[in-house]
């Protein structure tokens, strides 16, 4: 299973033709304590760069963009009641959305972990 990153601090984990999307620990740390996450409806489709979700801390509100195109097959409902999961486990329990990939080749345009680390340093 490979993990890819965007310059806007989303991560994408690919498993077959399904991709799990979240925000990076670095982004969660920059936002501060996350207090609210707005997730899309299952069944909605996105193109790369579309606003897919909103994540809010006490001091900031940020859009989360779709890193690749696809249809939403699941959302992390837990975040509705426990938005702190984004801070506690940004790359695990704090995931946002699962997408059914429509074009796996788009993944090639994203960064790998080493490139992302260089991007934020």
């Amino acid at each position: 299973m490979s993990v890819k990153f965007t310059k806007d601090h989303e991560w994408v984990k690919v498993d077959g033709d399904e991709a799990t999307v979240g925000i990076t620990a670095y982004a969660a740390d920059q936002l501060g304590d996350v207090v609210f996450v707005e997730l899309p409806d299952v069944g909605k489709s996105f193109e790369p760069g579309d606003e897919m979700a909103v994540v809010e801390s006490v001091k900031a509100a940020s859009e989360v963009y779709a890193p690749v195109s696809g249809e939403v097959v699941a959302v992390n409902d837990v975040l509705e009641g426990e938005p702190q999961k984004v801070n506690e486990s940004a790359d695990g329990d704090g995931w946002f959305v699962k997408l059914k990939l429509s074009d796996k080749s788009q993944l090639d345009g994203l960064m790998d972990e080493a490139a992302y680390k260089a991007h934020i340093s």
Binding site: V35, F36, E56, S57, V58, K59, A61
Partner: peptide, 12 residues
């Protein structure tokens, strides 16, 4: 819930 407000959310 200030993220609803103009000083944070600006045009949104």
């Amino acid at each position: 819930l200030s993220t609803r407000e103009q000083h944070i959310r600006r045009e949104k």
